[in-house]
Design a binder for these strands. Structure first.
Lengths: 224, 224
DNA sequence: TTTCATAATTATGGATACAGTATTATTCGC
DNA sequence: GCGAATAATACTGTATCCATAATTATGAAA
């Protein structure tokens, strides 16, 4: 093990996180086999923590373990996407509902600050930054809902979604459309209209999926 | 390892399943520490597959791994229940909605057969059997929804719920009330009223939680 | 030339051994 | 007698080793 490491977190957790990042970065593409031995050598660790990390990722659905066959990055089908997005819409809609009911003025102000950041990144067409802050925006609302399990569930699904190359935001006009939808959501939260916030968030998520379907085939390619 | 075992599934999966059953049977109570070494000796296996099994259970939320402290059976608070039940209600409601839209006459007939079984077990006050078939009833509707992710999500939450001793069905009158609610759900599914099926299932789940809250303190004890 | 069977190689799954850290108990000092 | 510090013990975390199963390659036969 590398000396100087404080090792407060277990090694298998670190390995799991590194693998997650590589999967999310599409460096490890869905379907390919994850070579335990090679990775162990590459990371300079033994196979034991690596195997434990793979078990964790398998439980998250990011990798699929075939007995005696090895670990493979999970492949997500279009049908999976069609099943997951409506779920996400429902769950995030619920978040918006609960968040609206419990929102404090400070929390709303924080959301609006994030929204202004989004506007800036959209104006300068910084899609990467927009993507990050957008995640932060949604995460914040999930936290505001006060329901730990609801938030966890959404995060788990989002991990699975990150397996695919979803660049709905890079589709022409989607960035502005997304911003407009955020304005509506914020408005509903600000005025305390929980049901409207729920509906708008719900439709916002589904609109993301719609943009994907429309832009199918022309999705951006990222050189691994 | 026991000879004669075909061992198609990995050992860690078997161990995980055995531990799950012991946790669900409340043989391993929430909060207690799971002794790796002792269990390894007890099962006649090494610590390696046991540790992998614990990682899986941790991902499911059944056990909590405290770094350098060991594995503990997860403790569920009342607040957790208050957060989980509305979620379950929403998710199972959604299942009922989708199931209604896709229901074939054969599937409906199968549901009604299960319902008749429930009536029999209720009449003879066989709570254990009722509980089992009740699970089957709900699971069937989840499968009918055709959404793999929705079903998985509900099953995951249900696992966590099984950590606690939830015997709402053993509370006086709840058995009959549950049956009545099922009648309503079945009626909605049969007539194709998806929205009504959703609402009724939603309320059915919440009613289970309500019964629990009312019956708090007087919950029945089940040996093992 | 293609297909099937057998053998060899490689990788996964499980066991055992070792090191490091945390907890607990005992002893010493105040 | 009580509290703190140090030492010992026990358990987690990691590495190495071994066995078994799967896959691939090679050779022979059709």
């Amino acid at each position: 093990m590398a000396p100087g490491r404080i090792a407060q977190t277990a090694l298998y957790q670190e390995v799991a996180e590194r693998l997650r990042q590589r999967i999310f970065a599409h460096e490890l593409l869905p379907g390919i086999r994850i070579d335990e031995q090679q990775l162990a050598v590459e990371y300079g660790i033994s196979r034991t923590p690596l195997r434990e990390a793979l078990k964790v990722l398998a439980a998250e659905g990011l990798v699929t373990l075939r007995p005696r066959r090895g670990a493979f990055v999970t492949e997500i089908s279009d049908q999976d996407l069609d099943e997951i997005f409506p779920l996400m819409a429902m769950l995030e809609g619920r978040c918006a509902l609960e968040a609206t009911r419990r929102a404090s003025p400070e929390q709303i102000a924080r959301l609006e600050a994030l929204h202004r950041q989004l506007q800036r990144f959209a104006a300068s067409n910084q899609i990467g930054r927009f993507f990050e802050v957008n995640q932060e925006f949604h995460l914040r609302i999930q936290e505001m809902s006060g329901n730990r399990w609801l938030r966890q569930m959404i995060q788990d699904l989002r991990k699975v979604l990150k397996l695919t190359r979803l660049f709905s935001l890079s589709i022409d006009g989607r960035l502005q459309q997304s911003l407009d939808e955020h304005v509506g959501i914020l408005e509903a939260i600000r005025t305390g209209d929980a049901l409207r916030a729920q509906t708008m968030m719900h439709d916002h998520i589904l609109a993301g999926r719609q943009a994907l379907v429309r832009g199918a085939g022309e999705e951006a390619r990222v050189p691994s």
